[in-house]
Design a binder for these strands. Structure first.
Lengths: 327, 327
DNA sequence: TTGTATGCGTTATCAG
DNA sequence: CTGATAACGCATACAA
């Protein structure tokens, strides 16, 4: 591996000036710069990040903490964050953490593979009781996406309430009156806005929401199936289902199909996320977009301490087969 | 930030000995070790990775190169790799690359956020003509998963041929004789074994494979839909479809359902991957497991230069609704 | 078993 | 505009 010294020697220029060229200083004469750049090419020199980091104390690395699960949501976030980092000249390092260890080990701590300048945490971990002190111990600027619990780090609010309301309004416009919600776990505050949006729409339309119409799910497919069975065993059954995410919506919908219900003629379903599963299902699932790019960009800007004007992009609901029919 | 010096000062022990404790040397007396450990706790000391890296030249970091796509396959790999790294005391850093830049920029090069000791590449990028020289330029030990093209780095072979054969044998056992394949692009060698397995099964059963029965797809959902339309417009139509992956299988299957075909009574489908979509679909999709853990473990061992005995875990086919019925 | 001195590759200080 | 030189935090050869 060639070092900066080698480059200096080969080009006959001092180390300091080579460093200047490397860091894009404008106080270097063009012909000198050219010489240096040629030497760099010839030696295939690449600066040692570790050394640079040691002396500057900065790495320009943001760590994104993701759980050890293969969920579509997380890979979308990874992609969006990587893109956002690139666009501001920073780097993204994805660090997975062991969910089991987090739950079981009282002294659990974030393990970082390399020195970073900031950390970003995703829901629902943004509010996890062991995550907060661990972030604090790191001592790095931290952005907690969709976090709700006050504490260490910056909270990036995600506003799902209005889109959720739009989705339920759509179901109402299709003629549904008894609309049930497959809701997030009651301790998962980050998704609670979807529940509130549901109640907004119902209230605005003067529709009743019996307590039993709100099923607290685990947000997993199986839980959606369970929700469907439970809600359909009520004396007064719902005719439409609004789910906190696509996974539970599909769990409910496929259970309905297996039992012989027709979708959307007999029952309507709407999810949330616009996951590939929602697009590929038959009937395809009505759902709502997640503003991944916007969230990622804002998170990265917050993380690196550049607080730009936040442009709220309008949210979009995606109407598909699972909800489109008159009753 | 506390340094090793601070720890030494506080505990009244020399730097060298503190370093010994940190690196788990066994030549330190227990009471001294205890003192050092207490000082570390009190100061919340954490060794600076950059400094350690600078002097040892090693980072114990493996970089996993993933494209900027949110595909389930990649997130499974990320998870499995992270786990495999942890189990050998190494770290995984996920580095996303810009597919568009890779395709368009003739001088494209892998951009690493931090110094790594090895790199792992996933299919189909393991064989990409711009990936190979870029890996070589990095000069790090590289593992190319499911790679086929000779060149820089180590090739980790993935043997899908036999499972693919089993899957097709299952379709044959269900009474199907005209079985079409939604195949990988002909230049994607990493998935070609699935095609070969299909031909194995057909040949062994003495079944004919007209050229038109092998549709070269892009491996995306829409391409599966296109494949179905094309294959069903043949004078002699297939009754079963074996797809190179779940995405194309679902593309074909949902198209069939939309056109009023019954699955599996009229037509049978099998995919490959065991993705969430395959489980959540209705009818649920017959498919095959991917040995993520095994591949990840082996890749990591190869990357760090520990060549252990490779235990081939048996592959598993997953029989679901989309294929299970007598004709 | 412990302490001291040196160097890893880079940036930054300060004098030319 | 340029060039010596001192850090940065840690590991290690070498000496005690």
């Amino acid at each position: 591996m060639a070092t900066i010294k080698d480059v200096a020697a080969r080009s006959g220029i001092s180390i300091k000036t080579v460093s200047r060229v490397l860091n894009g200083a404008d106080t270097v004469r063009p012909n000198i710069r050219a010489k240096v750049e040629q030497a760099i090419r010839e030696l295939q020199y690449r600066p040692a990040l570790a050394a640079r980091q040691l002396v500057t104390g900065r790495s320009f690395i943001i760590v994104l903490l993701v759980p050890d699960t293969a969920h579509w949501y997380y890979s979308m976030m990874v992609q969006a964050m990587a893109q956002a980092c690139r666009s501001v000249g920073w780097h993204l390092v994805v660090e997975t953490f062991d969910r089991q260890a987090l739950e079981e080990d009282e002294h659990w701590s974030i393990g970082l593979s390399c020195d970073a300048d900031a950390v970003i945490v995703l829901p629902p971990w943004s509010d996890h009781p062991r995550m907060l002190p661990s972030l604090e111990r790191l001592g790095l600027p931290a952005v907690r996406i969709a976090g709700r619990v006050p504490g260490y780090g910056m909270l990036l609010k995600v506003h799902d309430r209005d889109v959720a309301r739009q989705l339920v309004e759509h179901l109402i416009a299709q003629g549904h009156q008894r609309i049930a919600m497959i809701a997030p776990p009651s301790d998962q505050l980050s998704s609670e806005e979807r529940h509130l949006g549901y109640r907004d729409a119902m209230a605005a339309a003067g529709l009743d929401v019996p307590d039993a119409f709100v099923f607290r799910s685990t947000m997993l497919f199986e839980s959606g199936a369970e929700a469907f069975r439970q809600l359909m065993s009520l004396p007064v059954r719902p005719t439409a289902f609004f789910a906190v995410n696509d996974a539970t919506a599909l769990g409910a919908m496929t259970t309905a199909l297996r039992l012989g219900f027709r979708v959307p003629q007999d029952l309507a379903f709407a999810g949330f996320d616009n996951s590939p599963e929602s697009r590929y299902a038959f009937p395809s699932l009505t759902t709502a977009d997640q503003p991944f790019e916007q969230i990622a960009r804002q998170a990265v800007l917050m993380a690196i301490g550049r607080d730009e004007e936040q442009v709220e992009t309008p949210r979009r609901i995606i109407l598909r087969e699972s909800s489109q029919s008159a009753l």
